[in-house]
Nucleic acid binder design. Structure first.
Lengths: 107, 107
DNA sequence: ATAATTTATCGTAATATTGCGATTAAACAA
DNA sequence: TTGTTTAATCGCAATATTACGATAAATTAT
């Protein structure tokens, strides 16, 4: 017990849930917002930007990277992170699709 | 340690994260999809629909209700659940807003 | 070479989530 | 009343998440 029963659901449902879960933390929302707004690959000032410890931010970045929402490349001695446009649009389409399934209001 | 530092983030970021987190489980995705598709308030056949135990589904319904995405009314001896159109659109707008913040692709 | 900077990873503690059997409570049927 | 149906809640076990100090690894600066 205690482990999510992904076997009961479709791949699309699991994928949607995975994306939503990754966006389900304010630090990760803050990270993607920051990357969106500066609209560039940055050698992260994220530790300054958010108030969390470096190890914690690294962990959040890893999760965002794992799901493909951001990508990081080595830039000398630091890292350069930015949003992966392709995946970002894919996530947007999946979530938009979910919201658009609900058409008429019944009550 | 181990508790999300909501104090570090804006209300909007926390709200966005809360919505995403609730949608971050395949059972809850399946529930809102089902409610969307039948487009009606139902005396839930959800236990039949999904393969989870009744207690588990009840718990997921409670979380969706807590965040306001669905609403339930007593219908005789059973419950009638449906999507809350207002909140649903609010969630859609918030998430769309997040995705639309990212405009230009930098790499 | 040595020191400083940057970021990933490890280890650990605190807390949250998931799932389900069992029980409870309320409405309905006989 | 007695039994049935429906759904919420309790209690618990298993697992996942969050946070952070400490450490490691790699690059750059002196």
């Amino acid at each position: 017990m205690g482990v999510t029963r992904t076997d009961l659901f479709t791949e699309q449902q699991n994928e949607l849930a995975k994306i939503a879960r990754i966006l389900g933390h304010p630090a990760r929302i803050a990270i993607v917002q920051h990357l969106s707004r500066i609209n560039a690959c940055i050698n992260s000032d994220l530790v300054q930007e958010l108030g969390l410890a470096q190890a914690t931010i690294s962990q959040h970045l890893k999760e965002l990277k794992n799901v493909g929402i951001i990508q990081g490349t080595v830039e000398g001695s630091s890292m350069s992170y930015c949003i992966n446009a392709t995946k970002w649009n894919e996530c947007k389409d999946l979530l938009t699709g979910l919201f658009d399934e609900y058409k008429n209001e019944c009550c």
